[in-house]
Nucleic acid binder design. Structure first.
Length: 243
DNA sequence: TCCCAGGGGCCGA
DNA sequence: TCGGCCCATGGG
């Protein structure tokens, strides 16, 4: 939580997941969302819910090993072509879907994944309020691994699961909190134990990790203005070797 | 020209 | 169980 607070102080709330129909920060209040500071009532939220869940699920697939800027182009194509609808995604030919999401890369695989996930969510009635997919069932789907499953559950359904991606491993690895050899399950157990069970915190924390990884903790790290360098074992070692 | 990006499936050791 | 390879576009 100390790391979280430092990142939050440095970068401010990130307001993830970046959804096309709700570009701005979501509120904590269960009665509705805040969009651009305007409160949206729950009955309106219900109508938004289906498109929001779909868009988060689609984004979670499209962003696999892909920068978000390319995912946005693919999502924009889907919206522009009126394809951002579960029934349409299921109905159209796979190559047509693939063509629309081409900018996100791996488009043939991802088109197949979108159809499989959409079918699962539709059949299980998971676009309706209160119905939450089971993590194990999600993992059984072709194309859904642990990170994608947890992203969907955390951001679309508010389940407090820490999303562990390459950025998470890199940052906590460099800090000295995690070993690079630890499995997803082992890392998840540590983080889910150490943090308070608040899905808003989980959502914000992962977003802040991505922000920090892009700003400073890149593959080639930029440590000089990093807010975490005092507690970072990587930086301490860099100092020993460099200065 | 090369590296990197919010992974996951598959296969052989 | 784990490393290596494949999938693919686009920006820096």
């Amino acid at each position: 939580m100390q790391i979280y607070n430092k990142l939050l102080e440095e970068y401010g709330p990130q307001g993830w997941w970046p959804v096309y129909s709700l570009r701005n920060t979501l509120g904590r209040d269960d009665r509705g969302y805040f969009v651009s500071g305007v409160f949206i009532e729950t009955n309106y939220r219900a109508s938004l819910r289906k498109s929001t869940i779909l868009e988060i699920a689609v984004g979670a697939i499209l962003t696999q090993n892909t920068s978000w800027i390319n995912v946005e182009k693919a999502i924009d194509n889907l919206v522009k072509d009126n394809l951002m609808d579960p029934n349409i995604i299921l109905k159209i030919p796979q190559d047509e879907l693939a063509n629309a999401i081409r900018p996100s890369g791996y488009y043939n695989q991802k088109a197949k994944k979108l159809k499989i996930l959409t079918r699962y969510l539709l059949d299980g009635n998971f676009y309706e309020d209160g119905n939450i997919p089971n993590r194990e069932n999600l993992l059984e789907l072709w194309g859904i691994g642990e990170e994608t499953a947890d992203s969907i559950l955390l951001y679309a359904y508010g389940v407090p699961l820490f999303v562990i991606d390459e950025y998470t491993r890199r940052i906590f690895g460099r800090l000295g909190i995690l070993e690079s050899t630890q499995s997803y399950k082992e890392i998840a157990e540590v983080l889910n134990r150490e943090l308070e069970k608040d899905f808003i915190v989980y959502q914000e924390y992962h977003a802040l990790i991505v922000k920090h990884a892009k700003e400073h903790c890149r593959t080639k790290p930029d440590c000089l203005k990093c807010v975490l360098r005092e507690e970072c074992s990587f930086f301490q070692n860099v100092q020993v070797y460099t200065y």
